[in-house]
Amino acid sequence: MTDIQLIGSPMAPEAEEVVPALVGAERVLQPLARRGVFRRLMRDWTARIGFVLVVLLVLAAVLAPLLAPHEPLALDGGSFESPSWSHPFGTDRLGRDLFSRILFGARLSLGTAFFASLLITFAAVFVGSVTGFLGGAVDSVVMRVVDTILAFPSLLLAIVVAGLFKPSLWSLMLALASVWWVGYARIVRGLVLAVRERQFVTAARVAGGRSSRILIRHILPNVLPPVIVLATLEMGTLILAISALSFLGLGAQPPTPEWGAMLNEGKNHFFSAPHLMLFPGLAISAAVLGFNLLGDGLRDVLDPKS
């Protein structure tokens, strides 16, 4: 359901010429300012569930130190204890409390996803608006780079890039951003091209405005909102990618209580202590589901066709 806007029109099947995601972006541009987005969003039961999940997740991340019954790294229980009152999700091999680790994991997952999307948005807006605004050789070279990276499934390339570095949450974040920015950059470029032709920009040019000033004053304000919305919609995908890479050992390393890394740790004791995988797995699922539900609902609300 997240890929629907990738579909090109059957009349113009050439990937290079169709920027279908742009259509989606432009659609969200105007009505964003419309009032009552939230109220209309909450009319849909799936979006409501998504909202609740995301709010719970954010609360868990913010309040982790208050809510957690134990230190996430403290070895203060027996090995592989099953869920009990003192350890609601049980304990791992070293006797660490799983519930506390998952609460702190929310910070890492959300935080990494948030900073990664910040990085992606920043890179995309910079590259996309500069190339879109300047055009010419710079534009065509950068767009060929974009085409090349887009030829790969993002996750695959992110795995390879992350594998080149010493694994950590930072290298994971950089790897994700280095791959993910391209799709956004293409969208930004399309938006800039569209905005550039509008009257008020032409007017500013005729009036002799400096390029950088036109870019910042007139173009960016029109480009940023849809990109930010897109980044929000993709939060679920990013969380999924982060946990996938960590699960493969290419991101957060033990003893970091990152959910994907916890799954990786747990898989060695899967047969004897399945709860080690169950709870981190459920946490990832809930987070991704929450953002996807919210994103889907938002997309519906912002789509003037509905």
Binding site: M1, T2, A244, G281, I284, N292
Partner: peptide, 26 residues
């Protein structure tokens, strides 16, 4: 089908893999 599709798109494959292993294999 909507619920199933939402779950299918959200629950990570590397988690489902172990659930399947646990149920059908173990």
């Amino acid at each position: 089908s909507r619920v199933a599709a939402l779950l299918g798109a959200s629950v990570p494959g590397f988690f489902v893999a172990y659930l399947l292993m646990f149920v059908f294999g173990v």
